[in-house]
Simulated scan of single mutants.
Amino acid sequence: MNEVKELESELRAEGVRITRQRVAILSALSDSEDHPTAEELLERSRDFDSSVSLATVYRTLSVLEGRGAIQRNEFEGGGARFELSNRPHHDHLIDIDTGKVVEFRSDKIERLQEEIARELGYELVHHRMELYGKRKS
């Protein structure tokens, strides 16, 4: 089953009617390789269906977030940004000058976090890492 169909199932499970506008939003989310804001999703959704409204974007995002299908990121210095939850785990580096979000994965960091949790007597069940930086001149 492709991502759009999976997201449609998430909405249907909440009793949300699947409209052309919602399919456009789901398609824009599925096509995203970055971390769009609701406003950016509105613009991208309108490439699929020009009648999409911001209210429909917010309602759809709210339901998907409640179902755990998407993740809301609240990076410092910016509004909420969204990404699909079914993507492989990664951490974020945020450029404080441009707001650009860079995804990265480091096995070394993952091992160190597990080790720290274990040393403190915990089993790590979830984590998020956000690094903030400036490009070197």
Rank of each mutant, 00 (worst) to 15 (best):
E110G: 09
V101E: 01
L7V: 01
M1V: 05
Q21S: 09
E115R: 11
L120R: 05
D49C: 03
R118P: 02
E110M: 04
D31K: 14
E83P: 11
G121Y: 05
L64A: 01
E115N: 07
G133E: 00
R12W: 14
E10V: 02
H35T: 10
L61W: 08
K136D: 14
L93F: 05
L7F: 00
S62N: 08
G99N: 07
M129T: 11
R46P: 13
E74S: 11
Q71F: 14
V23C: 01
H92W: 03
L26K: 02
P36W: 09
I18F: 06
S9D: 09
H90F: 12
D47I: 04
A55P: 12
Y132E: 15
V102C: 11
I70W: 04
T19P: 08
L64F: 09
R59S: 09
R59K: 08
I18E: 00
G99E: 06
I96M: 01
R81H: 15
G99R: 14
G121K: 04
E119T: 14
R111H: 10
R72Q: 07
V4D: 06
K100Q: 11
A13Y: 15
E83Q: 08
G77Q: 01
E39H: 13
E119H: 15
T98L: 04
T37P: 03
D31Q: 10
